[in-house]
Design a protein around this nucleic acid. Structure first.
Lengths: 334, 334
DNA sequence: AGGGGGTGTCGAAGCGCTTCGATGACCGGC
DNA sequence: GCCGGTCATCGAAGCGCTTCGACACCCCCT
């Protein structure tokens, strides 16, 4: 265990073949007789051989590593990030790749650095802003990349995300079906809209566009994340619009506060006010009552991003936009 | 930009020196005249040279990459994880290292694999359990490692963590100072204690041990994470112990529910019940009222873990245990 | 004038792997 | 029985870097 590192030459000697033969057994790039392959694989197991990643990268010009660039900026919802990251790592392992973690605060330099030093073969970036400084760089980098989220001009890029516009629309449709005619969207904090974060805006647009289609009236408001502010927003909303009976909440951190506020204002869910959330499943399930929700399919998005980046590495063309359809999970709140 | 990769040989030619001279300029392992150094650095900038990571790893037997092994198991403290991860990446960059992300579900195999393939030089593991299967492996791996959290037998390892026992003690002391004589600890879900997760138990032990020291009575209860269960726990607690006026909450996901429950039971914070939380700062600040809390110093722990692992890589001895002292932040809830 | 000890630089030998061209061995067809 | 064609394997040339020993050169001491 943990003795000095075993090299391909030792495997070759042990199996009585040439070094190149071992290499071809491993890569499958040339035909090898069943008998030789067997012997080589046995030797590999017997010696506990693992190819040296650096040597392999040097000779093959492939590091078998992809970079995952995380935002790590306040305001982005953290548990979701974690699930993305986890999904990306798991998916990458399925393609025999590892994941190098970069934080966005190294900015374009970090990306340039790891690309130039051949540390990674490709990039997956999360939480791209509408006007992101890294986008031009990615566009003319030799290494392929996939973005989770959409910048303002996605031409020449590959982007994946939940279809937030459809999610907003889906929530409206659901409330309309249930007979609600006055509804509201409580979204991200104002600062998030100002920053131009795509998903917040797109949900709002989907929500607003759906109102006329489904013949309901409604407003979209930003929503801060402290209880007092949420309470005030909800109270004002209910006072100003006595007929309001449906709420869409697209703010994970505020979901709990919204429910507390309603409880405190004497409104029963779903009897007086129906609530549908756009948030991860566990948050919706843990709420009381459990919330009907459009889940953010973190695992699915991560997996899809890796699939796309691997396609690009293999030289296959990749679509510019991949929007994953929303799924509405019915629970007790509507 | 993004043209073919520049090699050290091109830099050497451009600067009119030998390849080895460029290498020594970069590593500083031999003295180079100020004049030559200047010319070489100029050439490096002019050509935009970045050393090839694989080649460097192959020749120097150092990948300049450390592995970060994240739990990514449901039920864990997710936002804190993210901050750890971020801190580890940032700290590692300060030592000119990058971070490879591994998930715990690859288990010992993943660790063995990246170690044997020389992809990484060292390991930082998070959320180690009391009886962790990876501990024996780490113990006789040639690559150094640092654990965040403590296993049952940390002999021969290097561990860092917040001093949770002291944190529990600190909360009791604070409530005692404020004149409370009957208090309770609401901790992690029961399953976390059963799994033997160290930090949950250590907090409880610190809490219980401090009770007699500070002449207060108290109980420690596990605490689930749905609103209804939290509500029920809090209600029962207040009914059974009418004199109870102080609460310590060591469960990030339940903090919001506890406050909602108190509000609903007509208890004012801090007037009727004082609450102190052990949780990340942002959670405590966002609560309403903002909570007096012992923060979980994710950044500090991450930074310390990297410092220790770098020391070990440099051959310096590292202490077996590093416990970071808790800091209590006073806010409106006590 | 000659020797000794620093400095600063160079050349070459690997590090462990992939890949390309070459080489045998073996087959069937005439 | 010889030829062309597969099939399986080998040997050697790199990939881009670090590191070690060698070697000028200069300066100071005798």
């Amino acid at each position: 265990m943990s003795g000095r590192t075993v090299t391909i030459a030792e495997v070759a000697r042990h199996a009585g073949v040439a070094v190149s033969t071992v290499s071809y057994v491993l890569s499958g790039k040339r035909t090898i007789s069943a008998d030789t392959r067997r012997r080589v694989l046995d030797s590999i197991n017997a010696l506990g051989y693992h190819p040296h990643a650096g040597a392999r990268a040097l000779a093959s010009k492939r590091a078998n590593v992809i970079a995952l660039v995380l935002p790590l900026r306040a305001g982005m919802h953290v548990p979701v990030l974690m699930r993305f990251a986890s999904a990306v790592v798991t998916a990458a392992r399925g393609y025999d790749h590892d994941v190098l973690l970069l934080t966005a605060d190294e900015g374009t330099d970090g990306i340039r650095r790891v690309a130039a030093s051949a540390l990674v073969d490709a990039f997956v970036l999360m939480d791209v802003e509408l006007d992101d400084r890294r986008v031009p760089l990615l566009r003319d980098l030799a290494e392929p990349s996939v973005l989770i989220g959409f910048p303002a001009s996605p031409a020449g890029l590959t982007c994946v995300d939940l279809d937030f516009a459809a999610a907003g629309e889906r929530c409206v449709a659901h409330l309309a079906e249930r007979g609600h005619t006055q509804i509201a969207l409580l979204g991200a904090p104002a600062v998030v809209y100002e920053r131009g974060t795509g998903f917040a805006r797109r949900t709002r647009e989907g929500f607003l566009a759906a109102l006329t289609v489904h013949h309901v009236t409604g407003v979209a408001l930003p929503c801060e994340e402290t209880f007092d502010e949420v309470y005030e927003t909800v109270r004002t909303l209910l006072t100003d619009r006595p007929g309001l009976s449906g709420l869409v909440v697209h703010n994970e951190a505020a979901v709990g506060h919204v429910l507390s506020a309603l409880r405190q204002l004497g409104k029963r869910v779903p009897h007086d006010v129906a609530v549908v959330a756009i948030c991860p499943d566990d948050v919706a399930e843990r709420a009381s009552p459990p919330l009907t929700s459009v889940l953010i399919p973190a695992e699915e998005v991560g997996r899809e991003a890796v699939r796309l980046v691997m396609d690009k590495l293999a030289g296959k063309p990749a679509p510019q936009a991949t929007l994953l359809p929303p799924h509405l999970a019915l629970r007790a709140s509507t």
